[in-house]
């Protein structure tokens, strides 16, 4: 089977600073892949390179067996990191989600009935239909994330890329977002790339975990990858791995026991 995302010898640099070096990854249809690593490890850069927002200095990325171009991008949904969206922009939730349909409509075309129905379905699916008339600036953190997930889903993507969708949310909202992403992954058979700092609350759903710090330290099934030696290398410090009931749990920076 051909991978939907194939990353071969990818090196990305900003000016002269290398952000990613010689990354090789293959992601197959329907996989739920977690991308982990400390701040500045290149997680967001990797997502942006896959989307073609950043061009590689070396190496190559292939999507659906072809190049990273506008046609491939239309088959992907992206939920960017919090803070990258201008929340003062005068747009209501319904219209903001509708924008996710724009690239699929032709010139001169305005949203049709079927576009509207799709937006309604997706908003109901993420439990945000009641927010449809609210300006985006009035949403809570968890509500906003559900709306941006809806915007990413409304184009019926085959790959969903999420950049730290739970960062800054309270524990309850984090759980809701993770459950939602799990439901979407199961229900639609989407391929999901999920960038996060917090592995424990999601590792039971993940098919694969990638540990990044400029280079790819480990990539594979959570049980094989989440190992104390790997994590100590990646996080350069205090990391413990405790064996939970069904999976390993990571404790980072447990200063009480140092």
């Amino acid at each position: 089977m051909e991978p939907v995302i194939q990353i071969k010898g990818l090196t990305v640099s900003y000016n002269s600073e290398v952000a990613l070096q010689d990354i090789n990854m293959e992601i197959y249809k329907g996989e739920f892949v977690g991308i982990l690593g400390p701040n500045g490890s290149g997680k967001t850069t990797l997502l942006k390179a896959v989307l073609g927002l950043i061009s590689p200095a070396q190496g190559e990325i292939r999507l659906f067996g072809g190049p990273v171009d506008a046609a491939a991008r239309k088959r992907m949904g992206y939920v960017p990191q919090k803070g990258s969206i201008d929340l003062t922009f005068p747009v209501k939730v319904f219209d903001a989600v509708m924008m996710g349909r724009y690239p699929l409509m032709g010139l001169f075309r305005y949203p049709s009935r079927s576009d509207r129905i799709l937006v309604e379905e997706v908003l109901k699916g993420v439990d945000a239909w009641h927010l449809r008339g609210k300006p985006i600036g009035e949403l809570s953190g968890g509500e906003a994330q559900r709306v941006w997930i809806a915007r990413a889903l409304v184009s019926n993507p085959e790959i969903l890329l999420l950049d730290e969708p739970t960062t800054g949310l309270d524990v309850m909202s984090q759980g809701q977002i993770i459950d939602l992403i799990h439901r979407i992954h199961e229900g639609k058979g989407l391929t999901v790339l999920y960038v996060t700092h917090e592995v424990n609350n999601v590792s039971c759903y993940l098919d694969k975990v990638a540990y990044l710090k400029k280079t790819l330290y480990a990539y594979g099934h959570p049980n094989d990858v989440i190992k104390v030696e790997t994590l100590r290398e990646v996080y350069a410090g205090e990391v413990e791995v405790i064996q939970g009931v069904d999976r390993p749990l990571v404790v980072v920076g447990d200063h009480c026991h140092v």
Binding site: Y78, Y102, P103
Partner: peptide
Amino acid sequence: YVTFDPEMALASGI
């Protein structure tokens, strides 16, 4: 779309 969220517009094929 480009006025609201240029990065997202680009990421979705505009």
